[in-house]
Write a protein that binds this DNA or RNA. Structure first.
Lengths: 329, 329
DNA sequence: TTGAAAGCGTTACCAA
DNA sequence: TTGGTAACGCTTTCAA
């Protein structure tokens, strides 16, 4: 049923080798034969099997993307921008949700290796390094996005989390806040954000939040509500909150309003990622913006160059975040 | 570098045919040989190449998912639930954004056919039917999700849009509203939702909104803000708005508040999809809920059964939406 | 119970 | 400029 290179060869009265050459624009073929073959291909609506092609050692033009959770708007927007950029270069993306689970990370990597994807874009947490090492050992192109792995010589794309945290602190302090709560899960990128945040406070000789706790669990909004309640019920409550992503910030806003705190008068809030959430919440959310489309494009550009053997100068791209000031501060 | 069936065969001192049989649990193999081969496979960390397997006519265990826009939380959540369910059955999902573009729909379908995906889940608009017909003619499994194609004998999974619209109308009318604006793009599902909505109004002999216009453009929130402004500046302004998705509803909320309308006192708003947005906005949003996890699971179940040749009784699944009442009404 | 060999749709080398 | 053919890694049929 399916039309193969043999059908084309037969109908065009040439060998399959010749057909293969015109498909790939290789070798020397007379104009006539080429046009003839092309015509037959069009007539029969021929499409080479990528499967068969891949078996001979060529690429599958497929990339694996490991992401913690598509339902988190930041990752959805990142996945979207990666997919868009991939399409421009004729690549497809297999998206896998890991839920921050090391087991799933490892399973998916195994599976996608089996499927012979040309490269991996890792946006998952990877607190566990073994699967990534496997990739590197096997010399499979990898780009890490939204975090860094200084221990490895892998390509990476990220925003400068440290600087983003620094920006957030600076903004809040300039607004007169001294006592600032922090909301975030225990992830590499958040640790960086908090490190940048605290650095600014230290520079200003402002004491750090005394009983900071990382948030557990994946239900961002719910967790943030719970934790914000705790912070606000403190004897000496914070006048501002820095949330390590917009979802957490949305939870903080909700909790604050439930307790009849006015934002930003009684409590200022800064989020991170500047996703669509930031303009949907009320009041709109001041948030540290990552240039998501640029990040996505950079991932694809890095990995495709690597796949095609094109040397790149800078293998570790870092974009500057910017502070989007809105009503919440 | 890569370990193949030949390596296993050699090291185990058997033929590749034997190895293949133990891999697939076929034919009759002595316990000893089987265990020996298994041991060697484990030792060499052997993984069959899915590419090579596929070339022999077997499945790729990969599904194509065409979605209009991952950045829309409804589709992100749907994609996530589909991916989750797929993983449970050892399938991977290639996610493609179409931006509601017929050209992209068609390009992606072509490409994924070339890549020999085992089936397609179509959540994109498909106002243009040709690509879908191609799939059907080629006898490639397809399930349509979030809309129906009564013209075709394809499998489908959806919520009952007509009933969802009806529910929304009923709720608003019961709250005393008579003059209700509608926000929605011109899509099949929205036409159904609006049809259901209007049916209820007609049953109650309430006149329909006189100058209804479908919304254009993809920037949901922005478009909704613009259109809501228009509605609210009308001489006889609506007291309620039914938005065909939560993003539009969020835009309506923003526009209303910008104009100092109190919600729900001055303007009630009902959304659709009950995505995470509904509990993030302020006030929280009354929304017609689709059972997204069930819908995702149903898609995968239908298509995998079809792929594996397992007959299914009901090829067109319809889930009942439910109304989640919150602060906006 | 095991294995030889053909076949899946391509590519690429080497001859012609 | 063209074509024959081995090779890619696996499955499957048929013999042994």
């Amino acid at each position: 049923m399916k039309v193969t290179i043999y059908d084309i060869a037969e109908k065009a009265g040439v060998s399959i080798a010749t057909v293969s050459k015109v498909i790939n624009n290789k070798g020397r073929i007379s104009v006539e034969t080429r046009e003839n073959v092309l015509a037959v291909m069009k007539e029969l609506n021929y499409r080479p099997s990528i499967i068969a092609t891949a078996l001979t050692g060529k690429n599958t033009n497929t990339l694996g993307l490991l992401i913690p959770d598509l339902a988190n708007p930041f990752f959805a927007e990142l996945a979207r921008s990666i997919e868009d950029s991939a399409k421009d270069l004729d690549y497809n993306v297999v998206i896998c949700n890991t839920d921050y689970s090391s087991v799933k990370e490892s399973e998916y990597i195994d599976l996608l290796i089996q499927k012979q994807v040309d490269g991996f874009i890792l946006a998952s947490g990877f607190e566990q390094m073994k699967p990534v090492e496997t990739l590197i050992e096997r010399n499979i192109p990898v780009v890490i996005v939204a975090r860094e792995l200084p221990e490895f010589a892998v390509m990476s794309v990220a925003n400068d989390d440290y600087y983003g945290g620094y920006l957030a602190a600076q903004h809040l302090v300039e607004q007169g806040h001294q006592y600032i709560g922090i909301l975030g899960r225990d992830l590499w990128s958040n640790r960086e954000r908090i490190r940048g945040f605290n650095t600014y406070l230290e520079e200003q000789e402002i004491p750090l939040w005394p009983n900071f706790k990382y948030i557990e669990g994946v239900e961002h909004v719910e967790e943030a509500i719970k934790e914000t309640r705790r912070l606000l019920s403190d004897a000496k409550r914070p006048t501002a909150i820095f949330a390590c992503n917009d979802l957490l910030a949305a939870g903080a806003i909700r909790a604050a309003r439930d307790l009849d705190f006015e934002i930003p008068e009684d409590l200022a809030i800064v989020g991170y990622d500047d996703t669509s959430i930031a303009t949907i919440v009320q009041p709109t959310l001041t948030s540290v913006a990552q240039p998501i489309p640029e990040i996505g494009a950079a991932c694809i550009s890095l990995i495709v160059n690597k796949i095609q053997g094109i040397p790149v100068q800078n293998k570790n791209l870092k974009f500057n975040p910017t502070l989007m000031i809105r009503q919440s501060t």
